[in-house]
Each structure stands twice: as C-alpha cells, then as structure tokens.
C-alpha cells in the first residue's frame, strides 16, 4: 500500500510537468490549429539558459524569472518572425516549419552546450520539512510550483480582459479584429506564454532527468498524450490529462509494463483516445446554432 501511494503521488508530481507542457501545446493549438512539435525543445533550450545563469552565480529564483522572460521573448520572436509568414500556408508547410524548429533548437543546444549530461540544481533543500516517505522535497516543491503556475495562468485567462481577448482571438479572429483586438499581437503573446510555461516544466524536470539536448523529447510525448487525453480544445482538461498521464505512466511502469516501456504508454494513450474518444475526456461538445 505504501509503495502504491508512493507511485501514485510521484505520478502526480511528474504529471504536473506533463500538464504544463500539455497546457502550452493546447494554447498554441487553440489559437493556430497547429501542434507545436518544437515546444519541448524550446523548453529544453530555456532550461540551458537557466543552467548558464545559475553557473554564472545568479541566485536560483532570479535565474528562474530571467529564464521565463527569455522563454517568453523567444516565443514571441518565433511567432512573429518564423511562423507569421507561413500562417496562411498549407498545413504541411507549418508542420515542417515546427519540425525545422525542433531540429534547430535541439542541435543548437548540442552545439553551444555540448551533449554531455549536466546536473541541474533543485531550489528545494534535500532535507526539507515537507519531504516525506512518499515524495522527495524536490517533488513536493515541483508540484507546488507547477500548481501555482497553472492557477496563475487560469486566473489570467479567466479574470483579465487581456486573457479574454486572447481567448476571443483564438476562437474567432475575424470578429476579434472588428472589436479592435490585434490578433497578431495576441498570437505572439500566446506563443510567449506557452514558451514560459514550457520553460517552467523544463526547469522543474531538469533536476530529475538531468540536462541534455534530448531531455524533453519524452516529456513532449507525455504532454501530447495528456493534451489528447484531456481534450485538445480544452486547456484545463489538457492539464488534468497531463496529471492523469503522469499517474498512469508511473503505475504502469511500476506494476504493468516495467520502466523500460513507459514511453509506449504515452503512445498507447494517444492511439486509444483518438480511436475511441477523439475529443478527449473533457473535450467540448457544445451545440452551435447557426
């Protein structure tokens, strides 16, 4: 029972990471109807920036904030410079551009920071009071940080006019322009936010996974599985889906398929959900009258 509880809680902790990435993916998908296959690599690259800052002696939380700013700026930049020119191009072209970005950031990280695996610090003390038999202090802290981020993002979209305008621009760009919303700016803002959320996932995952250029490929897969499971048109469903995938992955890894085949759990989740409930568990199915 104790072992089971441990696996369950630890699944929730890693699930928070997947939830963050799933949320980032869904935000982009809602606004552009595309899947940003480079989202994981952007997060990985941002994590290297955090690592560089920490190495240079910047205090951890300052480095954390600076990295989020960097990731936000990177997201805005890529949206405005790389993605905007292809926004009316065929679907295939946009997929290729995202794949191109994935490849570029992966190799850029290898080029600049080498492929040597690096350790990454955790801001949470090894023997903190909030550690327990079930979760390490880092896992507890990581869960808290991702939870705070998710709540902040939720509040932003729910309660601010800017968040509302972003939702509006994603849903109906033409009508948004007619009420004076600059859709291009909202897309850039969304890409920036997604980048920053991804960076949080990267920074929180790095102490566990260690830092290397391919660090995020697995997490991206779990994030995709979470997004599909929760419903790719529902950010909160996707976040919940991410947590569920984390739990599922941990339990399956411990009791069913073994740690070796964990990634296949994500693949299977994706295939099964798309086969039997393509809108996901919490996908919207509202009736639109015309």
């Amino acid at each position: 029972m104790q072992a089971f509880l441990h696996q369950l809680l630890s699944g929730i902790a890693t699930g928070g990471i997947y939830a963050s990435l799933a949320l980032a993916l869904v935000m982009i998908h809602q606004a552009t109807h595309h899947i940003n296959f480079a989202q994981g690599e952007l997060a990985m690259f941002a994590t290297y920036i955090a690592w560089t800052l920490v190495q240079a002696g910047v205090p951890y939380w300052a480095a954390f904030v600076l990295t989020l700013v960097f990731a936000f700026a990177l997201g805005v930049f890529l949206q405005n410079v790389v993605l905007r020119p292809v926004q009316n191009a065929p679907f295939f072209s946009v997929v290729i551009v995202f794949i191109g970005l994935l490849v570029i950031f992966n190799s850029l990280a290898g080029w600049i920071f080498t492929y040597t695996v690096k350790t990454f610090p955790s801001p949470f003390p090894i023997r903190a009071w909030y550690g327990s038999n079930y979760l390490s202090p880092h896992e507890v802290g990581m869960t808290a940080v991702t939870l705070v981020v998710l709540v902040l993002v939720f509040a932003f979209f729910r309660f601010t006019n800017l968040g509302l305008a972003m939702r509006g621009a994603a849903q109906n760009p033409a009508a948004s322009r007619l009420v004076g919303i600059s859709v291009g700016r909202m897309l850039a803002l969304g890409a920036g936010l997604a980048g920053a959320i991804g960076a949080v996932a990267g920074i929180m995952a790095a102490p566990i996974l260690y830092l290397e250029p391919n660090m995020m490929s697995g997490i991206l897969l779990y994030g995709l599985a979470g997004a599909v499971l929760g419903g790719i048109d529902n950010p909160w469903g996707a976040a919940l889906g991410g947590v569920m995938v984390g739990v599922l992955e941990n339990l399956a890894g411990a009791y069913v398929v073994g740690t070796e085949l964990k990634l296949s759990v994500a693949l299977l989740v994706i295939i099964f959900v798309l086969l039997f409930k393509p809108s996901g568990l919490f996908g919207r199915s509202i009736v639109v009258r015309v």
Partner: peptide
C-alpha cells in the same frame, strides 16, 4: 483593428459570435 478603434462598429455577416464564450464575455470583448 485600428479602424475599429477609430469608432466603426461592424456587425458582420454571420454575426461573428464568440460561441464558446458567455454572453457577458462577448460584450466585454
């Protein structure tokens, strides 16, 4: 969007409803 900001309100063909948002949120937009 800048034409809209100058003071031209356009009730478009097809109504341009933000269908997933509430009535109040539509008005807030």
């Amino acid at each position: 969007e800048s034409i809209a900001r100058l003071g031209i309100g356009h009730v478009p063909d097809g109504r341009g409803t933000f269908s997933h948002l509430s009535v109040e949120e539509n008005l807030r937009l």
